[in-house]
Structure formats: C-alpha cells, structure tokens
Simulated assay, not measured.
Amino acid sequence: MPTELEKMLAGELYNAGDPDLIARRSAARKLFVAYNALPYENADEKKAILRKLLGGFGNNVDIQSPFYCDYGENIYFGENVFVNFNCIMLDCAKITLGDNVFLAPNVQLYAAYHPIIASERIKGPELAAPITIGNNAWLGGGVIVCPGVTIGENTTIGAGSVVTKDIPANVVAAGNPCRVIKHL
C-alpha cells in the first residue's frame, strides 16, 4: 500500500495530516525560517541551509528573503536562478525551474490543490500536480502559477498574471487567465 508521500508525489488524493508529511513540512519551516533570518551577506550559511531544504540546485542561485515553501525537497533549480522577495512555492509535487529563470517579487507557485467537488473537498484529502518553468523564463511581479502548468523556455509572463494552463516557449503572455500576447 502506498504511503501518503508516495500518493502525493504521484498526483493521487492524499492525507496532508499524515504524521510523516507533517514532520517534513515542519522540518522545511525550521529551515526556511533560519534562512530568512540570516542577513543577505551570510551567503555561505544561506547556501548551506538551501542544501538541506531544496531537492537540488545549480550554481549561482540567489533567493531573496523571505522565501516560503511546503516541503522544499520537491523544488529543483537550474543554474543562474534568481528568486526575488516573498516567493511562495507549495511543492506538494515537483517544482522545477530551468537555467537562467528570474522570478520577480511575490511570485507564487502552487503545485497543491483541492478537489473541486465540495463533498469531496470537505473530506480532507488533497491533490498536487508538478510545475515546470523552462530555461530563460521570466515571471513578473505577483504572478501565480497553478498546479500542473508548464511554462516554455525563453518565455516572459507579465506581472499579475494567473497561469492556469501551459504556456509555450518563446512568447510573452499575460492576464487572468494568462494567454499568449506575442510570439518572440
């Protein structure tokens, strides 16, 4: 029988109140609180915390404080990633950022979601779907990316956009819901 963690990562209904999942979220919170409390100049200490918190990351990753996540271990960054102030990543499924990705302030990546049928939702189990952001993408301030979305490489998402569906490579997209405005 699969564990709640295995169900969560497989995109199946899972119980977020599972003791193992609670312990993992608690460990992540301790790490991001410590990360957020350190001065910007303490780069080596901050990087050491990221090694414990995140699933993996390349060279030259710069995450401005405050930064928040659910588990951390399901977040993967490529090379030369910049994450500006007040980013939230609900990583109940894998969140992957490619190389040279820039996230402006207040970007929110939500891999977690709940059943849309109220009678199912109130029972408590949750769902999650992965988010992938391709190389060289830039997400403007306040962008929200919903579960299961892929954003293609070299794409810019305009500030304030709500990305509910996949966005192709080499475009500028914006709005609520986010849609392609210009091909590059």
Results as ranks from 00 to 15, higher is better:
residue 93 A to G: 03
residue 15 N to E: 15
residue 22 I to K: 13
residue 146 C to A: 09
residue 164 T to P: 02
residue 151 I to Y: 02
residue 33 V to I: 13
residue 36 N to R: 09
residue 33 V to W: 14
residue 6 E to W: 12
residue 142 G to D: 06
residue 130 P to D: 06
residue 91 D to T: 14
residue 129 A to S: 10
residue 81 V to P: 08
residue 4 E to V: 03
residue 98 G to C: 04
residue 3 T to Q: 10
residue 162 V to N: 07
residue 35 Y to N: 05
residue 109 L to N: 13
residue 64 Q to F: 13
residue 141 G to P: 11
residue 30 K to G: 10
residue 184 L to H: 14
residue 110 Y to G: 02
residue 39 P to W: 03
residue 178 C to T: 08
residue 109 L to Y: 12
residue 23 A to L: 06
residue 93 A to V: 01
residue 139 L to M: 05
residue 156 T to A: 13
residue 114 H to W: 00
residue 78 G to T: 10
residue 49 I to S: 12
residue 111 A to L: 04
residue 128 A to K: 00
residue 176 N to E: 07
residue 147 P to N: 04
residue 15 N to W: 15
residue 45 E to Q: 11
residue 85 F to R: 15
residue 126 E to Y: 03
residue 130 P to S: 08
residue 138 W to M: 08
residue 120 E to H: 07
residue 148 G to L: 08
residue 154 N to G: 08
residue 15 N to S: 05
residue 144 I to D: 03
residue 179 R to K: 15
residue 131 I to L: 04
residue 107 V to M: 09
residue 17 G to N: 11
residue 128 A to F: 01
residue 77 F to T: 02
residue 125 P to C: 11
residue 84 N to D: 10
residue 137 A to I: 10
residue 132 T to Y: 14
residue 69 C to P: 08
residue 182 K to Y: 09
residue 108 Q to D: 11
residue 101 V to T: 02
residue 18 D to P: 07
residue 139 L to H: 05
residue 144 I to M: 06
residue 151 I to H: 02
residue 170 N to I: 06
residue 135 N to H: 13
